[in-house]
Amino acid sequence: MIIEGKKDKDRIIVSVAGRMDAVSAPDFDRRCEDWLVDGQTLFVLDFSGLEYISSAGLRSLLVLAKKLTARKGQVVIAALKDVVREVFTISGFGSIFLIAESVEAALRRL
């Protein structure tokens, strides 16, 4: 899994590519924690390169959401591939996160 963060004014765009699973999710947790410590509270997650997500990945997103709620921050998830979108739909996950069609659309919501 490749994770890259790019700041855009007071927001951070986090691009995640590859597989987000039990093996790689802890990396995502650590990187997000670093950005939170750095003071970032508005996250856009660019999932256009994300091929696969398991419950470990979903759990990481819940952890991020919880931390952001405590900081009055927000996260928008952008550009889901079909297979990942289906996992969001099946799990009911899609109903608790803000989902945007593209990074640009996500940025407009923050």
Partner: peptide, 18 residues
Amino acid sequence: DWDEHVKLGRKNGLGVYL
């Protein structure tokens, strides 16, 4: 229970449910 997962940081049961 998604509210519980986000508010309380509950983590279990997700994989099996999925």
